[in-house]
């Protein structure tokens, strides 16, 4: 190893994901629903590398069908819980669910007591959010002292409204919840990222919902998302535990690719190996217009 090599110190660390009062070492937030068993869920959470998991507030079925409570399968010293208002269809119910979630987390002593994932649905088939009710609920929960992570559609106008009323993070959907369609409108996500970060580059935007497989997670990070929240793509994979690990790697890969900066797309090829000293003659005898100034050596 040369002296030059020894002095080269790569800087590969990343900043934490900061949302409200929370600093998360993993940029992946995972859901806890739809697993076959609690044991499978616990192992999947482990493989995701996440330090934040979201949970729902529900009445009636105090135990699951096997007599288990999810809180016996989540290490509360390790994970920050993010209570959500999933299943609420108006601002009033979402606010009640948020307050109930806060009360449970407060009595558990979990740091997640001060925030909530706000989800106010507007349509039971698409599970798309009701933008009006979401804005109303967000504003009131912010006034109540919550850090509000707001599930929304990929509409840039709604995203701006939510930030304006104090959302700690705006969380646009890649595609409908549980649909596995990935990022249907990357252009809208780009616009949301651009608008919300224009004068506030640290403002966290988290892509929430729609992920189908690992490459969707990478794509979200490559667009510039600060985090990704997903559930079904892991829980309903044929092998959830392996898919969870894939999601961890995809998040790291996508985030690193974003920080590293992709090369511009070119119409023509650009040789990675030197064009000088080639032992072969070229067909047709002339340089093409796209073959100028491409004598840099590289990995190809």
């Amino acid at each position: 190893m040369t002296a030059e090599n020894q002095s080269f110190q790569p800087k590969l660390s990343d900043s934490p994901l900061v949302v409200g009062n929370h600093r998360l070492s993993s940029r992946l937030i995972v859901g806890t629903g739809r697993y076959d068993t609690m044991e499978q869920m616990r192992a999947s959470l482990e493989q995701s590398g996440s330090d934040c998991v979201t949970v729902a507030v529900r009445r009636e079925r105090l135990y699951d069908r096997n007599g288990q409570n999810i809180l016996d399968f989540i290490d509360l010293d390790r994970y920050t819980l993010l209570p959500n208002t999933a299943g609420c269809y108006n601002a009033k119910d979402a606010i009640r669910a948020a307050k109930l979630g806060r009360e449970i987390l407060r009595t558990l002593g979990n740091p997640g007591a001060d925030w909530v994932k706000l989800e106010v649905l507007g349509d039971s088939r698409t599970l798309l959010p009701d933008p009006t009710e979401t804005v109303v609920a967000c504003e009131e929960l912010v006034a109540e002292g919550f850090g509000v992570l707001c599930y929304t559609s990929d509409c840039p106008v709604t995203a701006q409204r939510l930030k304006a009323v104090g959302a700690a993070s705006v969380m646009p959907a890649g595609s409908p919840i549980g649909s596995g369609q990935g990022l249907l409108n990357p252009n809208n996500l780009r616009i949301i990222l651009e608008y919300l970060k224009e004068d506030d580059p640290e403002y966290p935007v988290i892509v929430d919902a729609g992920v189908g497989t690992a490459s969707d997670v990478s794509a979200a990070f490559e667009l510039g998302a600060d985090g990704v929240l997903l559930n079904t793509a892991i829980a309903h994979a044929r092998d959830p535990i392996r898919m969870s690990r894939a999601m961890q790697y995809a998040a790291m890969a996508g985030r690193d690719a974003f920080l590293a900066g992709r090369i511009p797309r070119r119409l023509y090829g650009a040789a990675s190996s030197p064009s000088e000293g080639v032992i072969s003659s070229r067909p047709y005898g002339t340089l093409g217009k796209g073959d100028q100034g491409n004598s840099q050596s590289g990995e190809g």
Binding site: Y35, R58, D64, N69, I70, R96, L100, T232
Partner: peptide, 10 residues
């Protein structure tokens, strides 16, 4: 009365 707990969800 509404008595609630936490369950799995996304």
């Amino acid at each position: 009365l509404e008595v609630v707990t936490l369950v799995g969800g996304g």
